[in-house]
């Protein structure tokens, strides 16, 4: 199920809006799947809640004197499940389409905020000055995910891949790409700080 993976190497069938003809997508990243547990748990509770009400229906009717006609119950159930499906769909879409792309020429950050706002940022490999990764907290250490911070020479002085899987590997691969691009072996020793020692 690489289509749903948080980290895909040389993804097949992926193309993005500003991709050039001779540009190859090398890595595609999303937020680590652990970051989805919040909305997945809430969605599961939402799906199970009507079943709890069905089970406790007799209690509500007898003890609390609450009586709802069958038609209203059907309507309420349908609306509730529609709303729950919409909630899950919207959260899935936000996770699925918010991606970080590494190509052989640049880094691309595709962001969708809510329903009405999108932002696509990109950074040429030549403009990268510093690559750092950081991991912190129990969840990030346990599940091995974190942020990759990329400092650039442009007006937008840094670029951030947030909560991506295996940030150390991503950092290493970006540095290798720049080295390959520049044809220099001194880059990692002088310009880049390896490891999570970002201050």
């Amino acid at each position: 199920m690489s289509a749903l993976a948080s980290f895909v190497e040389k993804p097949v069938g992926i193309h993005f809006e500003t991709q050039e003809k001779n540009e190859t997508v090398l890595y595609l990243m999303r937020r680590h799947w652990v970051t989805n547990l919040g909305w997945l748990s809430l969605g599961t509770i939402m799906l199970l809640l009507p079943l709890v009400l069905v089970v406790s229906g007799d209690y509500l009717t007898k003890e609390l004197g609450i009586e709802v006609s069958a038609n209203y119950q059907i309507a309420a159930f349908l609306i509730w499940y529609l709303f729950s499906f919409g909630f899950l769909l919207e959260n899935f879409l936000t996770w699925y389409f918010n991606v970080y792309i590494v190509t052989d020429k640049r880094l691309v950050d595709v962001d969708f905020f809510g329903l009405f706002y999108k932002q696509i940022s990109e950074c040429q490999l030549e403009k990268i000055q510093d690559v750092t990764h950081r991991m912190g907290g129990v969840a990030q250490i346990m599940f091995h995910y974190g942020d990759v911070l990329i400092q650039t020479a442009g007006v937008n002085d840094y670029f951030e891949f947030e909560v991506v899987p295996n940030p150390g590997f991503v950092q290493k691969k970006i540095i290798e790409l720049i080295e390959k691009k520049q044809g220099s072996t001194s880059v990692s020793g002088v310009l880049f700080r390896k490891g999570g020692d970002h201050v």
Binding site: A3, G13, E17, F97, V99, F112, L115, K118, I120
Partner: peptide
């Protein structure tokens, strides 16, 4: 949401 999925798919095309 329909409009949004179309827009998102135009920005990032995938098999899904």
């Amino acid at each position: 949401i329909v409009r949004q999925v179309n827009l998102m798919s135009a920005v990032l095309g995938t098999n899904l």
